[in-house]
Design a protein around this nucleic acid. Structure first.
Lengths: 103, 103
DNA sequence: TATACTTATTGACAACTATCGATATGGCGC
DNA sequence: GCGCCATATCGATAGTTGTCAATAAGTATA
């Protein structure tokens, strides 16, 4: 067993904020620009920029520049990978980390 | 739409730590006592107690006293609920939060 | 080109987090 | 009851996080 727990820590950190959870939900349907996302919240522009950087750095969100605008989408491959990782650690398994521990 | 994002923030905070991710993986197979978990890490007893409190408070882990020992298990109902929440926010949906935003 | 608009960066700051050693609490066995 | 063991709590501390206003940088438009 050699799961790369550390690799997922920044992802769960990215998910540990109400604003960012809502942004992910918003992006699940369609690409949105930062100014559009900003309208949904009562936060400053610099704060949103900070949140978008955390989401991009974690890999959950793709960012692309379109002229003056930044357009964001969910990174589906990454979000699915996180789903799989989480499913794996919460599920009973044969190669369990505890086999070398128990008793 | 009225997802309770805030309710899940403590859960993702609990998942935002390598030690705690590993503990969850360990508990996925069987109940373990704190002293047993401690053996797997190079952390102090007080630090483990702190981590177990965060995991219990988030609802991911059940704690029960057995004499002098604390025994921990995964809270399967809760971990599944978190899986469902995460699946929902990353998936395209008809009642999307962005329907009232886009255009 | 000048002005307005969109986003990123910086610096400051208060709040929170992870860690430890020391100490307290509570159960077990003698 | 006493001493030991397992766990929880406390106080201190260094590092991280979320927020803002101010400012910078890049783009669009008139």
């Amino acid at each position: 067993m050699n799961r790369s727990y550390a690799e997922y820590v920044p992802v769960f950190k990215a998910l540990s904020d109400e604003t960012r959870l809502k942004i992910i939900d918003m992006l699940s349907c369609e690409e949105m620009c930062a100014c559009h996302i900003l309208e949904e919240f009562s936060i400053s522009q610099s704060t949103l920029s900070y949140h978008m950087k955390i989401l991009s750095d974690s890999g959950l969100v793709n960012a692309r520049r379109d002229g003056a605008w930044m357009k964001y989408t969910l990174n589906e491959a990454r979000t699915e990978e996180v789903l799989l990782f989480y499913s794996n650690i919460i599920k009973k398994k044969s190669d369990c980390i505890c086999t070398c521990v128990s008793k």
